[in-house]
Each structure stands twice: as C-alpha cells, then as structure tokens.
Design a protein around this nucleic acid. Structure first.
Lengths: 154, 154
DNA sequence: GTTGACCTTCCCATGATGGGAAGGTTTATA
DNA sequence: TATAAACCTTCCCATCATGGGAAGGTCAAC
C-alpha cells in the first residue's frame, strides 16, 4: 500500500502550486496542457511511460512527468505525428544524439507540412477563381456547380 | 427478376465504352473515379441515392449516376466535407437555387481552408526558425529539442 | 462445368481526440 | 459520522474519409 501523495490538496486555486512533487492525473493535465484522456491514451500506446500508481490504482505524476507531457504537447502543436514524437522523445532522452538527426526529422516534417499547404492552396486557388466568376445573386446559373458537374475538371 | 444490363460487356479495354447505359459498380467506379468502396459508403450515408439492383442484388448504374459520382468526387477534390457536398448536390439538383447560396458555401469553405493553411504555415515558420538555429552536426546540442522541452513555448 | 473476375455484406483499422457510462476513492462539509 | 462533491478508474463508442480483407454469391467465357 504505497500511499503517496496524501499531501497535495485537491482543488487548489487557478494559481497553481509550483512545488508539489506528486500529483493526480487532473493536476498533471492542468499543468501540462494535455487532457487526462490523452495522457491515458499516450500511456496506452506506449508514447508516455506509465506513471506510478497509488494503492488504489490512481496514477501518480511527478514534475518530470509533466515536463515530458509538455514536450509531447509542444511537438503536437507543431504538427508532429505520434510516431515522430516517439522518435523525438527518444532523441531528447539520448544524451549522445546527433543534432543532425533531430534536424533531419524536423526538415522532413517541414516538407510534409509544405506539401499539405500546397494542396490546400491549390483548392483555394480553384475555388477563388470559381467564386469570382459566380454572380452570387438570385439566379440559378453558377459556374461553381458547372465546374463540379463538368466531366473533366482541371 | 428485372434482369437488366446483360449487354454491357465486362472487362472492356481501358478506352471506355462511351455509350453503355447500365453498368456494374466496377465500371461506375472506373468512370467516375470514385472507388467502389466509397460508392457503397456514400450510398450508406445517404449522400448518393441508391442505384437500382438486378435480381441478384448487383447495383445497376446509369450514366446519370456516374455524372453524380463525378460531381461528388470533384467536390471532394476541392476539400468539401461530405456534409457540404450533400448541400452542394441539393443545390445542383434545385433548378430554382440562387447562385448566391452556392457562392456563400464556397466562400465559407475557402475561409476554412485558409484557416487551416495559416495553422500549418505557423508550424512551418516556427520549425524553419528552429531548424535554422540547429547546427545539424554530430553534437547533441539542439535548439529544436530545447524549444520543445522549454516550459512556455511561444 | 470449372475458372476467374466480379459482385454482395460485414467487420476492422487508420489518427488524434473526445463523450459518456458504471463504478471505486478521496476529501469536504453538514 | 454520513453524505455529497469531486476526483479517479476502465471500457466502449463516435468522429471523418478511406481502405483492407473475409466469406460467400453471380456471371461470362473457355
């Protein structure tokens, strides 16, 4: 019965405690910006190493765990996939990594993002052109629909 | 036993027949560019009105069906969601539509796409900056990882 | 009359995320 | 001390558009 954590008060004010060493998932979520749902999910897919548990099964998080979760969230915010993040975390933990490896990963990801951007921009270009040609009035004639209905677009 | 369709030959060459009035899902797929899988799916969610069936249960498609499927594919190619396409198809079929309605839908979609583009561009900007600051050599020091690990990014 | 291409339905998977149910634990409060 | 409120747990389902694959029926051609 490793009852830890009994000291951390629940329902602390929005101004967080900054010292607490061990906390429940709710606190870890609040501090890391990763939802409790996603923390459990990341654990289940092995992206985040399962934290300790209390005797009653509650997860116990340290500030190091929160640090890791923040890292993960930041990477997600930059659009990295979970697999890429797995890789990034491994590099982060590897004291003897080569920064070239990180950079390569980032560069590949940039190219990926740029590809997606171009795809979307192509759609926007076409749509803007069509919308510009559309009167947008009460009449039914519409080059947008005409284009969608034409047999061989683009 | 409404056995239709017995005339359309299977396995016609890549140069399609251009006249065939009634065809199976494979042909309809080939001609519309929508996979058979997706045709069935669109039918199941009510986006595409179920085609007729032969006595043995095979779907029977007309060239009008193919026309509709192409419309749907074109709309998908422009990034419209299925719900938007539902709307577009309704407008397309509605002889007394106002082109303003189509244009409004398109404009909203353009805004949506532009929002997504900006999001991705933000990621690219940040990543490029970080990558530019990274030596990319054999040493472990890496501003990319430092940034991801920093408590308060951006 | 068998072969092979085609069709059917049904279930499962993707990726990242969330909703919600059913039920156990902890803390605060009357 | 009893109970309510807040928190935690696991499990299942849903999203969105798409595809894989199994099990089994149909059809045309040799």
């Amino acid at each position: 019965m490793n009852r830890v954590n009994a000291s951390v008060t629940r329902r602390e004010s929005a101004a967080d405690l900054t010292d607490g060493q061990r906390m429940n998932i709710g606190q870890a979520s609040k501090r890391s910006g990763v939802s409790a749902k996603m923390i459990r999910h990341y654990e289940s897919i092995g992206l985040f190493e399962a934290a300790a548990r209390t005797g009653s099964g509650y997860r116990v998080f340290t500030s190091a765990d929160v640090h890791t979760l923040r890292f993960i969230r930041h990477a997600r915010d930059l659009g990295f996939t979970v697999d890429e993040i797995r890789h990034l975390v491994a590099l982060w933990r590897d004291e003897s990594r080569a920064s070239a490896d990180v950079k390569a990963l980032a560069t590949r990801h940039i190219a990926d993002l740029e590809g997606r951007i171009e795809q979307l921009q192509g759609m926007v270009r076409t749509l803007k052109h069509l919308a510009d040609c559309c009167e947008g009035d009460h009449r039914p004639d519409c080059p947008i629909l005409d284009d969608l209905a034409s047999p061989h677009r683009r």
